[in-house]
């Protein structure tokens, strides 16, 4: 049998969603960003909302998210994405608006913007990538860095006396009346990725229903920043990150 006989539409079991561009990603092998991008693109395709979706990209590794997800994008200053999303959604109530932010962006420099956007209950989706480190800047300590974790700015390990405790910002977000759905997920294996995709879809659906802010944290790997191989990074995450940042819904109403 020739390969041409096999490559037929009826035999197709998987194809890349057209919402994901063919641009080669700049992410390191093993990084969670690529998987989360793909899940968002798939949700946008499945909901048929490519023309209605506006993404706000952060400062950090995902600054280039616009190169990979084929929708209109605004690239925000560090931490300010929720402010951009607020205005965009209020001026375009019929659109789906989401921010894509890392832990340095959302949990450090952008705490005021995320808290108040969530508290106002803006009908937006927030995708929060928590890998406990500054990726693009070169592996510095983030507010979410674990105790004892070595980074470029905590070379002897994060010391709570010096740096405070890891910030569980998602738990704070869940306390705000403006949020309708707050969940913590991961993409380290197929089952987790499927759950995360369901969470992202639900978040986008909530946005159309006008229920308030939906917040999806994805506990992620930064194997380059953590100085671990992709497989070891996944294992380290399950062993160390999950106890601090447990999986599951924090709020669903």
């Amino acid at each position: 049998m020739d390969i041409k006989d096999i490559m037929k539409p009826e035999n197709m079991v998987y194809s890349k969603t057209p919402v994901l561009t063919s641009t080669t990603m700049h992410y390191c092998p093993g990084c969670s960003h690529g998987t989360v991008h793909k899940l968002i693109a798939e949700v946008i395709e499945e909901m048929g909302i490519q023309e209605k979706t506006i993404g706000i990209s952060p400062v950090g590794c995902a600054v280039f998210a616009y190169n990979y997800v084929d929708i209109d994008w605004q690239q925000a200053a560090h931490g300010r994405a929720p402010a951009l999303a607020t205005a965009t959604k209020r001026l375009h109530p019929e659109k789906y608006v989401f921010t894509y932010q890392g832990d340095g962006d959302l949990a450090s420099i952008g705490t005021a913007e995320i808290m108040h956007a969530c508290n106002r209950g803006e009908n937006i989706v927030v995708i929060f990538i928590n890998n406990g480190i500054y990726g693009m800047t070169g592996g510095q300590m983030a507010p979410t860095t674990l105790i004892g974790m070595k980074t470029a700015t905590s070379p002897y390990g994060r010391d709570p006396k010096l740096h405070g405790m890891p910030l569980k910002i998602t738990n704070l977000i869940a306390q705000l009346d403006g949020t309708c759905y707050v969940t913590r997920q991961a993409v380290h294996n197929a089952a987790a990725a499927r759950k995360t995709k369901r969470a992202i879809r639900k978040a986008f659906e909530n946005s159309a229903l006008g229920k308030g802010t939906s917040f999806v944290e994805v506990v992620s790997t930064c194997n380059s920043g953590w100085k671990l191989s992709p497989v070891a990074a996944n294992e380290w995450m399950v062993e160390n990150m999950f106890p601090e940042y447990p999986m599951g819904d924090l709020k669903d109403r």
């Binding site: 506006i54 706000i56 605004q74 925000a76 200053a77 300010r80 402010a83 951009l84 999303a85 607020t86 205005a87 965009t88 209020r90 001026l91 375009h92 005021a112 913007e113 808290m115 108040h116």
Partner: peptide, 26 residues
């Protein structure tokens, strides 16, 4: 016309960035 009291001037100006990106008069 949308009128919104933001949490700070930092946020206000970034709301302008979002609105202006949409081609709106903000």
């Amino acid at each position: 016309m949308v009128v919104l009291q933001a949490e700070s001037e930092t946020s206000s100006i970034n709301m302008l960035y979002g609105g202006a990106s949409c081609g709106k008069k903000v």
